[in-house]
């Protein structure tokens, strides 16, 4: 059976909020190392990959592999009841029909208990290869969100170009063109503002802004975001959750016929 108690319960709500507009039904795959999720949007353009490691929970117990087939719209309805400092506990049997979700107030004077019906979801697990990316950019997640949102007002697509001079986000739309360039930036006192660009070779790729803006719904999870690019390879956008738990998005580049 599964029993997992999360003191940073808002993490769960933020993860679900970040992915529910991209994927609707998905399996939360539980095993002794933690809870993982992998789901692709209907158009096969974006892939979500999440791992909440066992050490993010206290206690965490899962004796065998359990797949929790969850409708995220339904889970969102349950998570509405979650309050800021609540502890959340997930419980399920080995072959579960439902997921038991408990919210406890930090003062332990209120316990809310929900059973969420589960579904059978036939999802193929895809192998995501370890990739040596040509460019890796770590930057403030709010900055990335602002750039994507601002450029989306002008165009459907953005070209991301990483060179030794920096990383350039540019778009061309009906009303004109726009571009934002970021350079390496180190702030010793406010490290969360740093822009770190690691480059082995120049990269230029074009992506749909609709999807990037969607990924930015994960911004509340972390003040930093990592963007990894290689020519002709899906873009990786990563938000670290707690410790080494993560939420990753992969996005197919646009290629000219």
């Amino acid at each position: 059976m599964l029993e997992a108690r999360l003191s940073q319960s808002m993490v769960l709500k933020k993860v679900v909020d970040a992915i529910k507009d991209l994927v609707q039904d998905c399996n939360f795959d539980c095993n002794d190392s933690g809870i993982a999720l992998q789901a692709m949007d209907n158009s096969h353009v974006a892939l979500v990959s999440m791992l909440l490691k066992a050490e993010s929970f206290e206690p965490y117990r899962c004796d065998r592999n359990i797949a929790l087939g969850v409708n995220l719209v339904s889970l969102t309805k349950v998570l509405r009841a979650l309050q800021n400092d609540d502890l959340v506990t997930l419980k399920a049997d080995d072959a579960p029909d439902s997921l038991n979700i408990t919210f406890e107030s930090s003062t332990a004077d209120r316990i809310s208990e929900y059973d969420l019906k589960l579904m059978d979801i036939d999802q193929e697990h895809l192998g995501i290869p370890d990739t040596e990316y040509a460019a890796t950019v770590t930057m403030p997640s709010t900055e990335f969100k602002r750039i994507c949102t601002d450029l989306q007002a002008m165009s459907e697509s953005v070209t991301i170009e990483a060179t030794k001079d920096g990383i350039k986000f540019s778009c061309a739309g009906d009303i004109g063109n726009g571009a934002v360039t970021l350079r390496n930036y180190q702030n010793v006192e406010k490290e969360h503002l740093n822009v770190d660009i690691e480059l082995t070779e120049p990269v230029s790729l074009t992506f749909s802004l609709k999807y990037l803006v969607n990924f930015c719904k994960a911004q509340p999870l972390s003040d930093r975001v990592k963007i990894c690019l290689s020519n002709e390879v899906p873009l990786l956008v990563e938000y670290l959750i707690t410790g080494t738990s993560y939420l990753r998005f992969y996005l197919a580049p646009k290629v000219r016929d």
Binding site: H44, L126, S157, S208, K254, R256, D257
Partner: peptide, 14 residues
């Protein structure tokens, strides 16, 4: 026209 790589095919081949 722009063509978007199918991630399913990409990852399944990997």
């Amino acid at each position: 026209a722009d063509f978007q790589l199918d991630l399913y095919n990409y990852f399944i081949k990997s």
